[in-house]
Design a protein around this nucleic acid. Structure first.
Lengths: 341, 341
DNA sequence: AGGCGTTGAGTTACCGGTAACGTAGGATTA
DNA sequence: TAATCCTACGTTACCGGTAACTCAACGCCT
């Protein structure tokens, strides 16, 4: 029955117990486990045998505490898991982090800065190795917390020339501007926009602003813009198009917050027998997976979401290990002209 | 310059400093911060004023260490962020957890049990409040770790009548079986399947097994099954259909691992002018967002992914707070007959 | 033989909180 | 008035590791 107890009781086995069982001091056992050197092979074998036999699992909390170090956690905040672009970014981040023995602590901020602030405070109290935040807007208190915590930090998504610490992203305004200019060059004059922005300071709004500016500069008319209170998915694209067209039937081309919404629009047009691009032009953003199976190439802006995540994690890891990291990284974007305009 | 230092230096402000500044003992300051009572209002005000002035941020690591307690972290393992169904589950989990002051530690296992084992060991060493694992298959060492750690645990996704601790999910075999029976009732005799299974023990394979069993029981013929080495998305559905039909043109109906793959198939058929359901029947699984914008109702299995996550988190939270929790929760599924078969 | 460096340990103190216990002084009660 | 209780604190010890230091034994050199 003794063997059974060893593995099933409340796992109270700590270094002292292992050391005692192996007939050495706690310190020696510690050295063996950290492969620090300064012990004989015989001792190493004895200690490791006891570690195995007792099922010893180190208490990393104690280690962090002892050395006043950080954990291996990296806090990653994203606005929303329902939005496909962010899950791609998150995947890029996590893949890179795990390969360097770090763990992602998720923070869904629901597009609310107050939520983000609360989350930042909580995560910082757990001594994370670093932080990755989506977006460049934060509450004043959050900024102060981040600065005084002095933890490696990457702000992603929207490019920020003066980040708190580091930044990885792209210029959303420019991507919207380029799309606007391109559509103007196609001869459109009456423009529409459908998105789901929740607050004024986010990247989608920057894209809309760039789009509007291009239209203004080019003498066109942004006759209708819609910001739904929803996640930017297929169905909001579908009913958003319906709403927009019913309130302004003269719109010639619509720029959507992302490809999923644009695909929703494509399906709406198919259902209503509205020809694309004959009757109306459709443009998306982000080049999401669904675009790969459409019968025609969607006009969109290609962005390497995974790359943003990877680059953010890479820079963070550099900083964590004390190396020099790039303060601002622009991953860029590429306009895909497509066949839907 | 003194004020500046307070907020910008390495945040070495701890309870002792706060206490000293407030002219009380560390213990009194601790009591105030935890609102434990046993202090005067005057003292409370003094301490809180210093907390504010010095920008004190509690070291939760120390608290956990002192009390030999757990952190507020909950480890959540999912196979893959690229698979939309899991992001829905994850969203359900995280939403519930944050509302109870817990944080999600993400673990992407990439469908590999060895990855999961490593991750479990790491996360356990950080004293998590609980664990949620996707899938019922684990390595023997992982099971042993979980048992001896004695941490609240929910295995989700695939229903398991004898979970390690708790389980929330649905019977995937049955959902596949029901789909098979339904398709048989529609008069089909030659069946196909396209999925992306990575290992033998996962839920998608259970669905396939149920599907195959139903076909066998009903006297049909599962003439072709395809398991691509890819994520179950739109494009794999597209080219998987192409592959399957080119190797066996007599297949009358195809059951896909999920709706996204099925939609990929729909697009393939449209491109090839193959009529649905005239020339071929298409069935999906999971009722994903894209299905909402199709011109016809997709034949599929409706599953409340968000609910699985929520329920898992709820049960976990009950157990964490010492209450009684349901060991096995079946969230069920519903066959959506649709118009694509 | 004496001095010295190396190897393989053990000892002590400490990280930042909190549980448990101790205690002074005022209020309440017998 | 003395015994008792309560309030509002302070003191001590400890959680499980690790940094920094100490030290004995042994081999090697001059």
């Amino acid at each position: 029955m003794t063997e059974f107890k060893i593995s099933s009781k409340n796992n109270k086995i700590n270094l002292s117990e292992v050391a005692k069982a192996a007939g050495v001091s706690k310190m020696t056992a510690s050295r063996v486990l950290r492969e620090e050197g300064g012990y004989s092979e015989k001792t190493r074998v004895k200690v490791m045998a006891e570690v195995e036999r007792l099922g010893y699992l180190p208490n990393r909390i104690a280690t962090v505490f002892a050395g006043d170090k950080s954990t291996t956690f990296v806090g990653v905040s994203i606005p929303d898991l329902g939005n496909e672009v962010f899950t791609h970014v998150l995947e890029g981040i996590d893949r890179k982090l795990v390969s360097f023995n770090h763990q992602t602590v998720l923070g869904m901020t629901q597009h609310a800065l107050a939520e983000e602030e609360t989350w930042i405070e909580t995560v910082l109290s757990w001594k994370p190795a670093g932080l990755i935040l989506t977006g460049r807007a934060h509450t004043p208190k959050a900024v102060q917390l981040l600065q005084s915590a002095n933890v490696p930090l990457v702000e992603i998504w929207d490019l920020n020339s003066s980040p708190i610490d580091m930044c990885v992203g792209l210029n959303h305004f420019d991507s919207g501007y380029d799309m606007g200019r391109f559509l103007l060059s196609k001869g459109y004059t009456r423009f529409g926009y459908v998105g789901t922005s929740h607050d004024a300071a986010n990247a989608a709004t920057s894209r809309l602003n760039g789009y509007a500016k291009a239209i203004e500069d080019g003498g066109g008319r942004l006759s209708k813009q819609l910001c739904l209170n929803d996640i930017p998915g297929f169905y909001p694209g579908f009913y958003g198009t319906e709403q927009l067209l019913s309130s302004d039937p003269n719109v010639e081309v619509i720029f959507f917050q992302n490809d999923n919404m644009a695909v929703g629009a494509v399906h709406f047009c198919q259902a209503q027998h509205i020809s694309i691009p004959g009757d109306i032009g459709i443009a998306g953003w982000g080049e999401l997976p669904i675009a790969s199976v459409l019968p025609y190439r969607l006009t969109t802006v290609q962005v390497n979401h995974l790359r943003i995540g990877q680059l953010a994690a890479e820079n963070l890891l550099l900083k964590i290990s004390g190396d020099q990291a790039t303060p601002v990284s622009d991953v860029g974007f590429r306009l895909v002209t497509g066949e839907t305009v």
